[in-house]
């Protein structure tokens, strides 16, 4: 059997299997050690809690808030990241003069700024959107900058020998060869955006799944806490798959796509 074909069906069997083993081990672990469910609830209890949570319309309102904040933050980061990355990649003196600032701002633990944002923008969505945008911005910007520079000189020669206009060179060469980098940045960026939103919700506000985490913690409701974390993970996965799907759609020719799911397999 070819590795490609195996790569197609194997995950569908291995993933449920591994999850089953994981939950079983978890269950056995709790029972053998005779642990309090207040500390580590058994998978069954978490499942019951999850069912309750999913049936509660309030949960969905919270999920919607988190999703909105994350997507808004991500889109802002995407726009800003592409713009700034393209400029820094193209204009050398800009990059040289701004590089120390960029490095410095990357090193600053941005999460520490959330209280400031809360003071400035209140407990509403704005402070979380800004947080998620800030976290997602850097990976996107850096990737775009790298991408703009990575246009192959041989391919550039082809366009030059054809006497191509700037617009044509951009459309047929620069844009296309930067796309994989944009998507690589987006895949990291969307994960960072979720982190930004959730941390923002932890630290201030009364909406969102991050807030639900804090509330269930205060209630010492460990099963519900687990259930919310699972919901958060699902939201994260969904958003990641959307970005990944966009990538497959827009750059099917790229190595990161065709080796992931070879069309010939």
């Amino acid at each position: 059997m070819s590795p490609q074909r195996m790569g197609r069906w194997l995950p569908w069997i291995s993933t449920p299997l591994l999850l089953a083993v994981f939950f079983l081990a978890w269950d056995v672990f709790v029972r053998v050690n005779n642990m309090s469910e207040l500390v580590l609830p058994r998978p069954g209890t978490v499942l019951a809690s999850l069912v309750d949570l999913v049936q509660d319309p309030e949960t969905w309102a919270h999920a919607r808030v988190t999703a909105t904040e994350t997507i808004a933050g991500f889109l802002i980061a995407l726009g800003a990241g592409i713009t700034v990355g393209a400029i820094l990649g193209k204009v050398r003196w800009m990059e040289y003069s701004l590089r120390p600032m960029i490095v410095a701002s990357q090193v600053v633990p941005k999460v520490a700024l959330i209280p400031l944002f809360v003071i400035w923008f209140g407990f509403g969505m704005t402070s979380k959107i800004i947080m998620s945008a800030m976290l997602a911005f850097f990976p996107i910007m850096l990737n775009v900058q790298l991408g703009v520079r990575s246009v192959e000189s041989g391919q550039r020669d082809v366009m030059r020998a054809l006497n191509a206009s700037r617009w044509h060179t951009f459309r047929h060469l620069e844009l296309k060869s930067t796309m994989p980098y944009v998507f690589a940045g987006m895949e990291v960026g969307i994960v960072f955006a979720i982190i930004g939103t959730i941390v923002g919700e932890y630290l201030g506000g009364s909406e969102g799944l991050g807030y639900l985490v804090v509330r269930t913690l205060n209630e010492l409701n460990a099963p519900a806490l687990f259930a919310v974390i699972i919901l958060l993970s699902v939201l994260g996965l969904l958003l990641y798959f959307v970005v990944n799907g966009l990538k497959r759609f827009f750059i099917p020719w790229h190595e990161s796509v065709y080796s992931q799911h070879d069309v010939n397999a």
């Binding site: 192959e152 041989g154 391919q155 020669d157 020998a161 296309k176 060869s177 796309m179 020719w253 790229h254």
Partner: peptide
């Protein structure tokens, strides 16, 4: 560039565009 019109170049490397 007006001098080099009607030019065809084959480079030592193929230099194709992988997206096309």
């Amino acid at each position: 560039s007006s001098v080099v019109s009607q030019l065809g170049v084959v480079f030592q490397e193929a230099n194709l565009f992988p997206w096309y």
